[in-house]
């Protein structure tokens, strides 16, 4: 098939438009966005989860984060990014290529990370925390020694969702001239080069699935033995279960 031919063409494996370069571009931006989102979302999520303060904030962030369409956010940031280039002194090229995509990715990755950190800590048995306090552990020790280890699987679930978001958004970023694997799809459509379109799609899908599987494995590894169940992507659980069903019991 044409797609296979496209893949086996050595020209597609080197240069600035080669597969390795595009994968690297994709991964670098994803990693950077995830890192930024983590630096912002994780501490806030852990704080809300540990103290129980501002829990409504977490729930609202979950709802808003879910409602924001990635493409819309990305393009809305574009004119702003371009407009601010002269003022902030970065080149319009970067303002066009990287900044809107990066900001959109980071912005979309914050809610799942934050919310899952919150939900993970909330899911830890209150008695354990009381017991920790009773034995004289400091709050920080409780957080590090009890809450985070027990919540780690749920927290990683948030990263899984965030990673998916980020990979998908980076692909769309190609429409505002960012590199990455989305380039093949956008360029392919523009040039009416179907094999290129499909090859790009296969690469993106493969990358997403590979990273998701890797994180699922990590999640499984982190789940305390004895609590192992099928792993889930987080983020959605919180508001999906609106309230515990009204049981007949006491």
């Amino acid at each position: 098939m044409d797609v296979i031919a496209w893949f086996t063409d050595p020209a597609h494996w080197s240069g600035f438009d080669g597969i390795p370069t595009r994968i690297a571009e994709h991964l670098v931006l994803c990693a950077a966005a995830l890192l930024a989102a983590t630096l912002i979302g994780l501490p806030i999520g852990l704080y809300i989860g540990h103290t129980g303060r501002a829990a409504n904030l977490a729930i609202n962030i979950a709802n808003i984060g879910r409602a924001i369409p990635s493409y819309a956010v990305l393009v809305m940031l574009l004119p702003i990014s371009l407009g601010l280039a002269p003022t902030l002194g970065y080149s319009p090229t970067i303002g066009l290529r990287i900044i809107p995509t990066f900001l959109a990715m980071a912005l979309l990755a914050i809610p799942p990370i934050l919310v899952n950190a919150y939900a993970g800590l909330q899911s830890v048995d209150r008695d354990l925390i009381e017991a920790g306090r009773g034995q004289g552990l400091r709050e920080g020790q409780i957080l590090r020694g009890i809450e985070i280890p027990l919540a780690s699987s749920v927290i990683v679930g948030g990263f899984r969702t965030a990673a998916l978001q980020v990979i998908a958004t980076a692909t769309i970023g190609a429409i505002v001239s960012y590199g990455g694997l989305g380039r093949y799809i956008i360029d392919g459509i523009a040039r009416n080069d179907l094999p290129r379109v499909v090859a790009g799609a296969v690469l993106v899908a493969g990358l997403a699935i590979a990273i998701d599987l890797a994180l699922a494995g990590l999640q499984r590894l982190l789940t305390p033995r004895g609590l192992r169940r099928p792993t889930t992507r987080g983020f959605t659980e919180l508001a999906e279960v609106p309230q515990p069903a009204a049981g007949g019991g006491v």
């Binding site: 998916l164 799809i185 790009g200 296969v202 997403a208 699935i209 998701d212």
Partner: peptide
């Protein structure tokens, strides 16, 4: 698995 495939890629994969 279906959910994991990024949207743009999913649309693109169906074009052929």
């Amino acid at each position: 698995l279906l959910y994991t495939v990024p949207s743009l890629a999913a649309f693109a994969l169906l074009i052929p």
